[in-house]
Amino acid sequence: MATPLLQPEGHQHSEIDRSGTAATHTPDARPLEAPPVQDLGDKKLSLFRLLLRDKFATLAALVLMFVGLVAVFGPMLVGDLATRQDLLAANKPPFSLDDGWGYVLGSDSLGRSMLGRLVVATRTTISVALPAVGIALVIGSLWGVWAGYHRGLRETISMRIADVIMSFPSLLLAVVVLYVFNPSLGNIVLILAITRIPIYLRTARAESAELQSRTFVDAARTFGSKPTAIIGRHVIPIVLPTLLTLATLEFCYVMLAESSLSFLGIGIQSPDVSWGLMVSQGRQYLQTAWWLSILPGLAIVVTTIAANILAAWLRIATDPAQRWRLSLPRKRGGRRFGTALKGATK
């Protein structure tokens, strides 16, 4: 479920591009009014080419790819570097090769390699954030699209459930899960996923509610298509880019939320380590060993910015009405995102 985020050129987009071809040459047309038009052109490649045209977006994609690679292969490479303690070599400053490459980013308060810990933390962070975002995205979007398509009671009930989740203290949920179960990664993922479902639910519902009144949906309905088929074939492809953009932004939010939980003592617990936990535990050493909290903080910031840039690019690239901007030298915009979110609280 998380693959779309890692592979923006994935197959979902070929469908979106289909819907967009008609609008590509008429930038001011409202994209949602355009019914999906069949066009099996080689959009996959062109999306990639478009990416290369924007050097910021390319850089962002590279950063994210690097983070992904570190998360997958890093822990194997660093071995026990992240756990080997040496109390006599604690808090060694970074950027010195006296103790070898393993300690180039210094050592932490127990003399463990900061580099090794950052690498292991990358995996934890990603394996919390990605599934959390993925689960919330899938559940929230499908539910929202369904509610928005059918409207009426189903819509009202869904919206009120969203209200309930949003006004429910997620901290309590965290404590309950930690108490009743164990403070494992899976449970943190569960908490973060549940509390973020309403965001997708509301957005998807708003979009889908607007779509279901459109003529092309009406047409499909009169031809006797089943609701699930219409949703799957006509609604979801149009709503997806917005939701994916949202998911990228949520990825950042989830990383920050996880670090706040760590700060409050109810997030990831030692001996597990995540960027957020490292920032949280390093904060008391701010005046004596700044690298303990600055380096993982930097990892969060850089990853988040990269994800943001890519999201900004992606929402234009996948938006037929905006896509032409990318073919012009250095143009970016974000109207689709705005219209997408406008109905979110309705």
Partner: peptide, 22 residues
Amino acid sequence: LSQVLQEQLSQAGLNVELKTVE
């Protein structure tokens, strides 16, 4: 401290798992 203790007990040949609670 708890991570140090876990490490030191493991060194002695024991199988120690750390659990942090509120």
